[in-house]
């Protein structure tokens, strides 16, 4: 469930959770290295934004920029009403990010990773919450295993569980469906939809049309020559047509 315990839900609801204005993204240092045309999009609390497009069109790159992990080549991104700056402790407290990263503290178990995350966000009495998320992500049998002993799908579940075990206002997910079985994908879609309905924001890059239809309230369709904001159905159809 999204949390606004760190202050001002009404204030936040008024401001856009994410506002990208003519943002150019890429991995070089000049505009020539932009991977797609400039992006302009806004999303508010209680909305889901699906970022869709073919491989290499800049979905993950845009998400990294929105998460403050990549410098934009041009334009600006505001998150929670202020320019994105992941150095801000409030930003880190309110924006939960799950990218395509697969790193773990080598000696810590699945459960310990989640306990650490919850406590790292200032939560007290976290044991029951962790147990709940461990069950929700089907990791109960493996909660005392080291991440190196997990399958790649189970490690993905652990990363997703870490996003749900902490307070958050905005969820940023890069292809959350990756390496998940179909049952887990369905449950994840339901959870993300619940997150959105509870007033949280979800922005996700995805290749899964079901996820787009169930979670997104709009889709950002990225292409080499154009960027468009379309309806979830159009976004899902674009994925199916790829």
């Amino acid at each position: 469930m999204p949390s606004s315990a760190k202050g001002g839900k009404a204030k936040k609801a008024a401001a856009a959770l994410l506002k990208a204005s003519s943002v150019s993204v890429g991995y070089g240092s000049t505009m020539a290295s932009a991977v797609c045309p400039p992006i302009s999009v806004t999303m508010s609390a209680g909305q889901g934004l699906a970022v869709v497009g073919a491989n290499g069109t800049g979905k993950s790159t845009f998400l990294r920029a929105a998460a403050g992990l990549l410098e934009v080549l041009g334009g600006s991104i505001d998150v929670l009403g202020v320019p994105v700056d992941e150095r801000s402790r409030r930003f880190r407290a309110e924006v939960a990010v799950v990218l395509d990263e697969d790193s773990y503290l080598p000696a810590l178990t699945v459960r310990e990773h989640l306990l650490l995350t919850a406590r790292g966000h200032g939560m007290k009495e976290v044991s029951a919450l962790v147990t709940e998320q461990v069950e929700a992500f089907g990791l109960t049998e493996r909660q005392n295993a080291l991440p190196t002993a997990l399958s790649s799908g189970q490690r993905r579940r652990l990363l997703l569980a870490a996003a749900f075990v902490r307070p958050r206002t905005l969820l940023v997910l890069d292809e959350p469906e990756q390496r998940l079985d179909s049952g887990m994908r369905d449950r994840l879609a339901a959870r993300l939809a619940a997150e959105r309905d509870a007033g949280g924001g979800v922005i996700m890059a995805t290749h899964d049309p079901v996820l787009v239809r169930e979670v997104a309230t709009k889709a950002l369709l990225l292409g080499e020559d154009s960027v468009r904001v379309v309806s979830p159905d159009e976004g899902a159809e674009a994925i199916e047509a790829l």
């Binding site: 880190r92 790193s103 503290l105 995350t117 790292g120 966000h121 870490a162």
Partner: peptide
Amino acid sequence: MGGAHALWWLTTPADR
């Protein structure tokens, strides 16, 4: 900060 610490520490609001 290495990959694991970056992922599990830097994402929290703990002061740097």
